[in-house]
């Protein structure tokens, strides 16, 4: 699908606008919170940290700590998680040609949740690159589950989409059952497990961000490089093969990239729902189905959406913190329905 120079420019313009929107969202979200810190003070601190320009003016080390150690890591985590989940959702929907596909569909959520539950029950205290056992086992669980599902779903040399989806569903159910059993056994950690499965970006700090960011960036770049294949998959696997796509290898590559993005996001945020399912649809409605454009646009929309949802989550009932998954669904679903109804043409997936 070659597109004209003019259309290309408008795409760059849209991505640029989304990027600016994200920057604005980040600044807004960092400026607002339970504790009121005047905007000019926030701006001065940010400029000082970023380019070393101007006076430090930190009459208040508390304000410094709140902005740079508590709010900003939380906002940056929202950017990373939101973009990773939206990109992963785009990959899975395109690859599986299924509008109900989300990043969790082939077992990543079940595997991650099981890993996190295990980590919460195990008595060991492990700190590794600033990570406790929970994110490590969540990541391992998510990737492990996908590998198992892929292995199980393989029929001869091929891995049909249907078996992949069904094997994912079966394994997810099994892991959910094991998790429920473990939760029953570890009553004292029940509360923590429940909170983890609700998802949230509050707990993450710079050390986690420094590890997860490269993973997500690698995933994004790989996904972008595979965007052309995703476009081919939209026509069906047979057609894609006719177009010269090595279907099975590319399928595996896309599965791994999507799972890597999901596992990285889930390890710092728990199971934030809704974004990976709906943001790709929103982006597709707004920007069309070409994955070379859809992937970055979807990632940016996901990042903006989660940053704003998390802002609402922590400001709405402050000082109480609402699990962000509640907000993403509560705000996102009506917006999605509005978009569906507004679009003049029928939404073709």
């Amino acid at each position: 699908m070659p597109f004209s120079g003019r259309r290309g420019w408008s795409r760059v313009g849209i991505l640029l606008a989304l990027g600016l929107g994200l920057l604005g969202g980040v600044i807004l979200a960092t400026s607002l919170g339970t504790v009121a810190i005047p905007f000019d003070q926030v701006a001065r601190m940010m400029v000082h940290r970023l380019v070393g320009f101007g006076s430090a003016t930190s009459q208040s080390p508390q304000a410094e700590a709140i902005i740079f150690q508590i709010r900003l890591p939380r906002v940056v985590t929202a950017v990373i998680v939101g973009s990773a989940l939206a990109a992963a959702g785009t990959v899975f929907q395109g690859l599986l040609r299924n509008p109900m596909a989300d990043p969790y569909i082939i077992g990543t959520s079940g595997g991650a949740a099981l890993g996190a539950t295990l980590a919460l029950i195990l008595p060991w205290q492990v700190i590794w690159f600033g990570f406790t056992l929970v994110p490590i086992l969540a990541f391992v669980g998510a990737m492990g589950a996908v590998l198992i599902v892929y292995r199980v779903a393989r029929v001869g040399p091929r891995t049909p989409i249907t078996t992949l989806l069904l094997a994912g569903f079966a394994l997810s159910s099994m892991m959910a059952a094991v998790m429920s059993f473990l939760m029953l056994a570890g009553t004292r950690t029940l509360h923590q497990v429940v909170l983890w499965t609700m998802g949230g970006v509050a707990a993450s700090g710079w050390s986690q961000i420094q590890v997860v960011t490269p993973l997500v960036l690698v995933g994004m770049v790989l996904a972008f490089l595979l965007a052309h294949d995703l476009n081919a998959f939209l026509l069906g696997e047979e057609q894609a093969a006719h177009l010269g796509v090595d279907v099975e290898r590319r399928k595996l590559a896309l599965l791994m990239v999507g799972s890597l993005l999901t596992a990285a996001a889930v390890s710092v945020s728990g199971l934030v729902g809704f974004i990976g399912l709906v943001v790709p649809h929103v982006a597709r409605l707004l920007f069309g189905p070409d994955h070379r454009f859809l992937l970055p646009a979807s990632a940016l929309v996901g990042a903006i959406f989660l940053v704003l949802a998390d802002l609402v989550a922590r400001v709405l009932m402050s000082p109480a913190d609402i699990p962000v998954g509640i907000i993403t669904a509560l705000i996102g679903a009506p917006f999605f329905i509005y978009l569906l109804r507004r679009s003049k043409r029928e939404y073709v997936f």
């Binding site: 919170g33 339970t34 504790v35 080390p61 508390q62 700590a65 709140i66 150690q69 508590i70 709010r71 909170l195 509050a202 402050s318 000082p319 109480a320 913190d321």
Partner: peptide, 18 residues
């Protein structure tokens, strides 16, 4: 001053109390 409840603690609030 309250800094949290059964569900969650507000770290920002805690820090602001220095």
């Amino acid at each position: 001053e309250k800094v949290g409840d059964l569900m969650s603690m507000n770290v920002e609030k805690i820090v602001s109390l220095s």
